[in-house]
Amino acid sequence: MKFNRIQRNDEMILVIGGTGNIGSEVVRLLDEKGVDFKLLARDKSKAAESVGAEVEIIEGDLDAPETVAAAMEGVEKLFLVTPLHLDQVSMKSTAIQAAKRAGVKHIVMSTGIGADPDAGVEIGRWHGKNQEEVKETGIPYTFLQPGFFMQNMLMFADPIRGNGEFYLPLGDSKVSFVDARDIAAVGVAALTEDGHENQAYPITGGEALSCDEVASILSDVVGKTVRYVDVPLEAAKQGMIAAGLPEKLADLMNELYALGPDGHLAYVMDTVEKVTGQPPRSFRQFAQDYAAAFKE
């Protein structure tokens, strides 16, 4: 498939979820391209600290539909991403329905790899439900379907700095970790170029790595030995709950981790390069870019 890489800079884009791993990079790239956009954020001052005071920020909340409707005024394209959340289906639904009422012409939405109403894991079914809702609106769409983020490793920055260890229930499974910056690049291409309408893009990194291989790369970059500690799913669940994740979401994460031994997390797709013209970042590149987070 070939894409028309002529930039569309005159259509107002609303970014929802613009302060997270993917969304903040979407904001940066849109700003770099000189595209007209605005950001919906729950706390305007905190968002400004994250994305910069020069970005137009509309204060609103997906739990307050009237604020989302107001933010949609004059918007032609929507970028939508939400964090893992117990209410993420209804949160996305609020934005989708507001976009429909506002006459938005294109929705670019981040879901997850394997998203489908009949997916074998519950989070996949949640994402699939929102995808079907978008399709039912008749609005052209692009679904970004990423796998595990490299940035998730930042959750282990403290134990890596402290005792040189990180903990996951993946055994020797391989995972095609993807950099959130590459997910954002695919999303921005979909927002600013023709040819991405009504497409679902599974997004992975360019290689599948075991956690021992991840530990080896981190050791090289950080300059000290980093060890991967394999833990049982139940121990991983208790660790996530102790870190503040609701039990239901910890169970959903464990459903994903449990896919690893059968190779379901190791698929490598060429979506990033096909869409952006650039190869995806390697885990080594990610580790080098974020090295300060892992060093004492």
Rank of each mutant, 00 (worst) to 15 (best):
D43E: 11
D10K: 00
I123R: 03
Y167L: 10
N21K: 00
M109Q: 09
E193S: 06
M155N: 08
Y141N: 02
D172W: 08
V222I: 15
Q199T: 10
G74R: 14
F283M: 10
A215L: 12
D220S: 13
D43Q: 09
P146I: 02
F148M: 05
A243R: 03
V221S: 05
G260Q: 05
I160M: 15
F156I: 09
G23Y: 03
L256Y: 11
S45G: 05
E234Y: 09
K295I: 10
A184F: 03
Y201D: 11
G124R: 01
P232E: 05
M253S: 13
P202K: 04
R181V: 07
N152K: 02
K135H: 02
L80P: 13
S90C: 11
V27M: 02
A242M: 12
A102L: 06
E32N: 06
L40V: 07
E296F: 08
G205A: 07
D270W: 07
D158E: 14
V221R: 10
A102R: 01
L154W: 07
P232H: 13
L14F: 06
D212R: 12
K44H: 06
I217N: 13
I16P: 02
V121Y: 01
A258S: 15
D172H: 09
L256H: 08
L80A: 14
N254H: 10
G52Y: 06
T67E: 11
H264N: 15
I139P: 08
I113M: 02
I58C: 09
I160R: 00
T111Q: 04
G60Q: 07
L40T: 02
R281Y: 07
L86Q: 15
A64S: 12
V108K: 03
E234M: 05
E255K: 07
R181N: 11
A190N: 15
A119D: 01
L249Q: 14
A47Y: 01
N130H: 00
A48W: 05
R5C: 04
H264Q: 15
S219K: 01
E234F: 05
L249V: 12
M153Q: 01
R284N: 04
Y201N: 08
E49F: 06
K2T: 15
N4H: 08
F149S: 03
I123E: 00
R181I: 08
V89A: 10
